[in-house]
Amino acid sequence: MIAALRLFALLFVVLTLIYLVLSFLLRQTAQREARETWEALDTRIDWETYLERQMKSYNRAMRRRLIFGVYILPTAFLAAIVYFVNFA
């Protein structure tokens, strides 16, 4: 039991680190692409407003995808391993 709890605690810490790094890198990419789109559009909207608008919708979509991909997917993978090694 203790060993399993230790593993899940360690897993949680590592996955949280991956989540933070990944969200930072992906946000940077999105900001850079928003910048390029904004320069290509050449509208009267100033950069800050445009960025804020783009980032709002992006953040909502990304958070859901990130939580699924970083937390749920590896845990499901782990459960699949336990099933296939022990019960199949």
């Binding site: 060993a3 399993a4 593993l7 782990l78 391993i81 336990v82 090694v85 022990n86 019960f87």
Partner: peptide, 10 residues
């Protein structure tokens, strides 16, 4: 629950 992560319990 240790290494390698085969989770061999049986």
């Amino acid at each position: 629950w240790g290494w390698p992560p085969y989770f061999k319990l049986d």
